[in-house]
Simulated assay, not measured.
Amino acid sequence: MVNFLLERTVPLPLDEAWRRVTQWRRHGEVVPLTTVRVVPPEPTRRGTLVVARSGVGPLSFDDPMEVTVWQPPEDGAPGLCHLEKRGRVVLGWAELEVRPGPGGRSRVIWREEIRLRLLPSLFDGVVRRSSRYVFGRALNRLLRSP
C-alpha cells in the first residue's frame, strides 16, 4: 500500500481551482496513456463513477473510482471530493481538497492511497515515487490551463 500527498498553492479563486481539478476527462489528457469516462455524464455528484483506462492494447486496465463525497467549495468554505477505487487492479482511494490559501490564493491538496493487486510491497517505493511524479505533473497541468 502506498500513500502520497501533493500540495499546490495557486493564484486562482476556490471555485476555479475546484473546477480545474474535477474536470475528470481532462485528467485523461494530462496522465500519460490514459483516457477517462464519467458515468453518468456531468454533473458530478455522490455516486458518479469516474473510470480511468490506462495502458496500451492488451496491457490496458480500468481504474473505476466512485465519488463518495462531493462537497464543492461554497462561500469561501473548502471543497472536498473523495473517490473510492473499485477496480480489479488498482484499489484504495483519492481525495481532492481545495481550501483558501494565503493572499486570496487557493490551496489544492491531493491525497491518495494506492494498492496494486498482486504487486508485492517490495515495490512500494517505486510506486510511490512514480505516482508522485506522474500525478504531480498532472496536477500542475490541470491547474495551469483552463
Rank of each mutant, 00 (worst) to 15 (best):
R144G: 13
V21W: 01
W24I: 02
A77N: 10
L33I: 05
E29R: 10
R132N: 02
T34D: 01
G103E: 15
T68S: 13
P11D: 12
S130Q: 12
P32E: 07
R25E: 12
V31T: 07
V38I: 03
V51H: 02
V2A: 10
E66G: 04
E95I: 08
G55S: 05
L116V: 13
H82C: 14
P102I: 00
P11T: 03
G125V: 04
T22F: 01
R8E: 11
R105L: 00
W18F: 08
R99H: 03
V89A: 12
L118N: 15
P11S: 05
C81R: 15
P58Q: 10
G76Y: 06
E97P: 01
R88M: 08
L91W: 07
V67Q: 01
G57H: 04
L6P: 09
V36T: 07
A52V: 03
S106H: 14
L80I: 10
A17W: 03
Y133H: 13
L122G: 10
W93C: 11
E113T: 10
L91T: 12
D75F: 01
R8S: 04
W93D: 15
Y133C: 08
R141K: 14
V134H: 05
P72A: 00
I109C: 14
W110G: 00
L6T: 08
L139Q: 10
S145R: 12
V30R: 09
P120A: 11
V2W: 02
L119N: 11
V67R: 01
R132A: 06
V134S: 02
P102N: 14
N3T: 05
L116W: 06
R129S: 13
G104I: 10
S130N: 11
D62N: 09
G28S: 05
D124S: 09
P43S: 08
D124V: 03
A138L: 05
R8I: 02
F4A: 00
H82I: 13
T35V: 07
L33W: 07
